[in-house]
Design a protein around this nucleic acid. Structure first.
Lengths: 337, 337
DNA sequence: CTGAAAGCGCTTACAG
DNA sequence: CTGAAAGCGCTTACAG
């Protein structure tokens, strides 16, 4: 590999001057600069990133921890982050927590050891303790959370208003005439499954529909199979249910498969609203009414916040944490009247 | 940040000894080792990765370039790569080429400048020139290609036998009685769309069905919309078509949507086989007969090959490039009789 | 068993 | 406009 030293020897000048010429320092003569640049390109010189990192104490690399990569929403977020980072000259190391707190903790450690310039994270469902995240702050590494956040952790955040979106989804079911509305909720820990549940409950209350806890099903894996399983359970438990608000599209699609199997008419007998607007939801039958969650935008915004914080810290500006709330839309399709 | 020097000063010993103690060199007394380790953990010492990289000339980081992240097959591959890499202590920098040759080229350069220990790549559809890839070899960086490979580039590869899989898919259509079989093919450059086309043609030939080039449609974006568009075109052009082999599931799903719209009975009037086995394909109506492509396995295998090459180079072993061909399965569903 | 010293390849404050 | 020198924080061959 070619080094500054070799270019310097080749031209009989000092390493300092070579370095300055390549970095467009103003105090290098045009002639020297030209000569150095030509020689560098001739020798196919690439600055040694390891040495640059050591000197400048930054790697222009950030870390990203995400619960699951094979997932329409999250892969859209990743795409948003990576494309925005590339524009600003940053590379992204991606890790997958598999919804496990233990893995997530290890991965935070991996990234801190790697000395990334910042960390983006969406929490695992299993994460209920946040010491590993406060450790990030203690190491002076900027942190931005998105989608699945922890309220108590002090850092910038990008989210949607899950509660409001869930409220609107449930309200829509009420407005088209549903009286007995079930909810398939996510696990207990993540803030977004709590908020979606609260939005559901709030809508019922506002429209004077009695809350019936037996209509709320607590899911764990949030998988297609679970959707089928609880759909079956729902119609065994409740003959009179006429609407279901489901925490996430994949589960809703499993539920629809089960309802289809059992010959239940959607939306005539049962109205279904999902959450996330996976591409898939537009192509199944019946197509799924759902809340559109802007994954790509969320990724872009999360990186932008992180980038700003990295820059501000370098300039020793005081950091103020921001909370960005992105808009959602209820997309009406054939699974509701 | 705590350094070796600080630990050394704290204990009144040399940096050398501290370094050795932390790395379990045998020539350090047990007492010293214990003391050093305790102090290091007390001070929350983390080795400076930048300095380690510079000294050892490796970063335990690899680069990954993929055409599109929001894509069931590719995101499965990424998951396979990342999980396998993590097991071996490697981190993965992911970039997305967006099917663009120009971007891909730039990204190879980014990764070489970053001095990653190796590169994994699946080529963009737009890539027809391979200088950027030979440059990787010239920089002594191990390279492994997967899925969308270039035959002429000398490196290890992980693929499926696209031609054979396409042959079997087409053969299946023939065996269930199709006489006029169309093919929606991918763009001209990528090897896999060439091979799938050749497999289709070979099956026709082997079963004495005349090849009719007007039954072959050349797609560009490989999107849902293109699937709809060419499905419409197909039934305008050919009243007598009774089977279609489609290069990839997303396109097939678009086509099915259009056929459904037009009231064409699948599979009674028209049999459809896709390629890739996206999750979506199992939940649409009718569900799609398709070739299962093992994305997660491919990712794991690709990393393993890269890892072995990295190790072998360090030991100055001679490198022999391997070509691993993974098995595919034809998954029979409701879109074929 | 311990440590002084060289060196990885840069950047930059400073002197001239 | 040019360059000598220090230093980022490690690792390791070598001496004792």
């Amino acid at each position: 590999m070619v080094t500054l030293k070799q270019i310097a020897e080749e031209l009989g000048i000092s390493i300092t001057t070579v370095s300055k010429a390549l970095k467009d320092y103003p105090d290098v003569s045009k002639k020297t600069r030209k000569l150095v640049r030509e020689t560098a390109s001739l020798l196919n010189y690439k600055p040694n990133a390891f040495a640059v990192n050591l000197r400048t104490k930054e790697s222009k690399t950030i870390g990203l921890i995400i619960p699951e990569i094979v997932h329409h929403f999250f892969s859209s977020v990743i795409k948003g982050i990576i494309s925005q980072a590339e524009k600003k000259g940053y590379l992204v190391i991606t890790l997958q927590s598999n919804e496990s707190y233990e893995l997530e903790k290890k991965q935070i450690d991996l990234l801190l050891n790697k000395r990334v310039d910042g960390i983006l994270i969406s929490l695992a469902n299993g994460t209920g303790d946040f010491k590993h995240l406060t450790e990030v702050a203690e190491n002076d590494v900027p942190l931005v959370m998105f989608d699945k956040i922890a309220k108590v952790v002090k850092c910038s955040k990008v989210i949607i208003d899950d509660r409001k979106a869930a409220y609107k989804a449930t309200e829509y079911l009420i407005k088209i005439g549903c009286k007995r509305i079930a909810h398939f909720r996510g696990p207990l820990l993540p803030q977004n499954s709590i908020d979606r549940f609260l939005g559901y409950k709030e809508a019922l209350a506002n429209y004077n529909i009695a809350y019936d806890s037996s209509l709320v099903y607590l899911l764990d894996k949030m998988s297609f199979e679970e959707g089928k399983f609880f759909a079956k359970k729902l119609i065994e438990d409740h003959k009179d249910v006429d609407g279901v608000f489901i925490n996430t599209d994949l589960v809703a699609i499993g539920a629809i498969a089960e309802f289809n199997n059992q010959g239940i008419q959607i939306p005539e007998a049962l109205n279904i609203v999902g959450f996330s607007n996976w591409f898939m939801s537009s192509v199944i039958s019946p197509s799924l009414t759902t809340v559109d969650q802007p994954g790509f935008e969320m990724g872009k915004k999360a990186f932008k916040l992180l980038y700003k914080e990295i820059k501000d810290r370098k300039k020793n500006k005081t950091i103020t944490f921001k909370k960005v709330v992105l808009d959602t839309d209820l997309i009406l399709r054939d699974s509701t009247k």
